[in-house]
Write a protein that binds this DNA or RNA. Structure first.
Lengths: 164, 164
DNA sequence: GTGATATGGTACGATTTCGTACTTTCTATA
DNA sequence: TATAGAAAGTACGAAATCGTACCATATCAC
């Protein structure tokens, strides 16, 4: 097989960027007013992996600067969707816990997305999506690990990483 | 084949969102100071599809509000990477043209990304990427068209769409 | 043609994102 | 233990994103 041209890789990431933009806009349309995708993503993360996570760990998981995560958490606290408490095992860090309201909002958002997924299932061959999932997962894992490798240009304080 | 659970679709978009985040960070590390991904994306768009595009058309292509595109273009103008001129066929609109410097910056950025793509080719089975490309392309096309369909929640002034 | 409506773009303010600098706490090494 | 360095979080300011309101121009109905 001939080596693919760089433009081909580029197209893959370009398509991914467009899909991310479209799906994010759709998600945000299903969220309560004042909540945007990063807020929901944090709620979802805390439910899927369990709450009581440190702020810094979530910043790493989402590959955002810790200052950005501080702001995101602050908004979630203002909406009473999470609570922040000190980490008893490390005086520097704080742990983030879901409130009942936070769980409910996440649950409702997923329920409100159901019609969109159903429409997708009607209009798109979902078998192809499932085929692509392992590739996407492995690509994400590769990029995540590669980020920690030597050749990555480290940018300020947003470094380090781990699987989401 | 059993119908996939919504969580499976969700995972696909979640992986895509993470990949977008990681690849965007990498791209921005290769751009000149002061330029971020949206700036490059506009340059790339103008080269791939030809310049002299209307601002509103680019906003639609990227699914961003026209106010966001106005700002992006303003930065590109400040960097002398594009020029904005009136549309002789429509007194309301403006057309965006690349400068030589704009073409050069885009060309250089792609050249600077080459080592990253080569590293990717060494560490990841690129055949799998190429297999996924048609699915991603079709999914993007579907979502783009679906956005214009009835069931989409229209959001403010960022409406309408067309292929990038 | 004239008026009503739609469209392209901008002004403005609110929110988000993020880099830098700093404080506090932990860890490692002597 | 003492102390230097690393790590977690925040304060702050700059830039980006985006919604609302508004102006100028175009299009449509009559």
């Amino acid at each position: 097989m001939p080596k693919p041209a760089p433009a081909t890789y580029f197209e893959v990431f370009n398509e991914i960027a467009i899909i991310e933009q479209l799906s994010r806009t759709l998600l945000e349309a299903r969220l309560p007013d004042g909540l945007i995708a990063p807020h929901f993503t944090v709620l979802n993360h805390l439910i899927r992996l369990g709450d009581g996570r440190a702020l810094i760990d979530m910043a790493r998981a989402f590959q955002v600067p810790k200052t950005s995560m501080t702001h995101t958490i602050k908004v979630l606290v203002a909406h009473e969707l999470v609570e922040v408490r000190p980490n008893p095992e490390d005086g520097r860090s704080k742990l983030v816990w879901l409130t009942d309201k936070g769980r409910a909002v996440r649950h409702q958002a997923i329920a409100d997305l159901a019609p969109d997924f159903e429409r997708l299932a009607r209009g798109f061959d979902t078998a192809r999506l499932l085929e692509a999932l392992p590739v996407l997962r492995d690509l994400r894992i590769y990029l995540d690990e590669d980020r920690n490798s030597a050749e990555w240009p480290q940018s300020g304080t947003s470094n380090a990483a781990s699987a989401r």
